[in-house]
């Protein structure tokens, strides 16, 4: 609140005309609302962290308050009962290959669509955009049947391929925007220098769209790490489950231990939070792509 009072009025001209007071009251109101909203966004982290660090008895004494003593017991039990380590590893073994596969396929496809003068490129791009608008739930059952029929149910490869396909349309669309920013003349120059399409992609195009690729990888990692429904349906077996399935099923038990759930949640949040801290700008760029054009 102090900060609001201290901040200089943005447009002195207007302030003077409207009389003093009013704009700063408005700003104060905005600030208060924003502060409350911000608290609701930060509180989950604080709550989960504090609940994970205290005993169950302590939690029951004052659920929303601060812990009176700390314990690492919840974390130990998150590993022994929830098998959080195993779940995280499962997730990584699906998500990392899928993210890499998406990046490779999307790069090649976007490159071909934008720069290799393919006859049907406009039509194909339109089809890709239509696929983006398709809600994945609609595909849940036929994809389940397909995976079942080819014997990839409860197989990581099945989920990797499904994840790759589901995220490809968006990824191709995102990358075409970056591909277009590479001047055509550079590609021509590379061709004259003797580079074939593969070499041109590798030595000229990729270095130039690295920021776009970064955005794509972080965004896809986030999406897939957090994904639930396809993972739930395709990797049903106990020991292969991904982290979100494991947590969702664990916390659904009637006599769950809040501390252990919180410890699991906290650990599962680490990758998204790291991405949030280090790649916030990439995420923002990816999520707003296409909004203003």
């Amino acid at each position: 609140m102090n900060a609001a009072a201290d901040s200089p009025p943005l447009r002195p001209r207007l302030t003077a005309r409207r009389g003093i007071g009013r704009p700063s009251v408005g700003k104060l109101a905005i600030f208060v609302i924003f502060a409350a909203l911000a608290a609701s966004c930060i509180y989950p982290l604080l709550f989960v962290a504090s609940t994970a660090l205290r005993t169950n008895a302590d939690y029951r004494a004052s659920p929303g308050g601060l812990p009176s003593s700390f314990t690492s017991e919840n974390f130990e039990r998150a590993f022994s009962q929830l098998h959080i380590g195993r779940l995280a590893l499962n997730s990584l073994m699906v998500v990392v290959p899928a993210v890499i596969l998406i990046a490779i396929l999307a790069c090649c496809a976007a490159y071909a669509l934008v720069h290799l003068e393919i006859r049907l490129s406009r039509l194909l791009l339109a089809a890709v955009i239509c696929m983006m608008a398709l809600p994945p739930t609609v595909l849940l059952i036929p994809i389940f049947k397909l995976v079942l029929d080819v014997g990839l149910l409860n197989n990581r490869l099945g989920l990797i391929l499904v994840y790759t396909a589901l995220n490809l349309p968006f990824s191709i669309y995102l990358l075409t925007a970056f591909m277009r920013s590479v001047p055509v003349e550079l590609l021509r120059a590379a061709g004259i220098d003797g580079a074939g399409p593969v070499r041109t992609l590798w030595s000229v195009v990729l270095p130039l769209i690295r920021p776009g690729l970064m955005t794509l990888v972080t965004l896809n990692f986030l999406f897939l790490w957090n994904e639930l429904i396809f993972s739930l349906v395709i990797l049903q077996q106990g020991m292969g489950r991904t982290i979100m399935v494991g947590i969702a099923q664990f916390q659904a038990q009637p006599e769950k231990n809040y501390g252990v759930v919180a410890a699991g949640l906290l650990l599962s949040m680490i990758p998204p939070l790291l991405i949030f801290v280090f790649f916030q700008r990439d995420l923002a760029r990816g999520l707003t792509a296409g909004a203003t054009k």
């Binding site: 909203l37 911000a38 966004c41 930060i42 989950p44 982290l45 709550f47 989960v48 609940t51 659920p63 986030l222 790490w225 957090n226 994904e227 639930l228 979100m244 947590i247 969702a248 916390q251 809040y258 759930v261 919180a262 949640l265 599962s268 949040m269 998204p272 939070l273 991405i275 949030f276 916030q280 995420l283 923002a284 999520l287």
Partner: peptide, 19 residues
């Protein structure tokens, strides 16, 4: 900060609000 809930899985949010 307003972006924070976006990066968290709905599973995490569901579990959190459940508590």
């Amino acid at each position: 900060v307003f972006f924070l809930p976006v990066v968290l899985s709905p599973v995490v949010l569901g579990a959190y609000y459940g508590i």
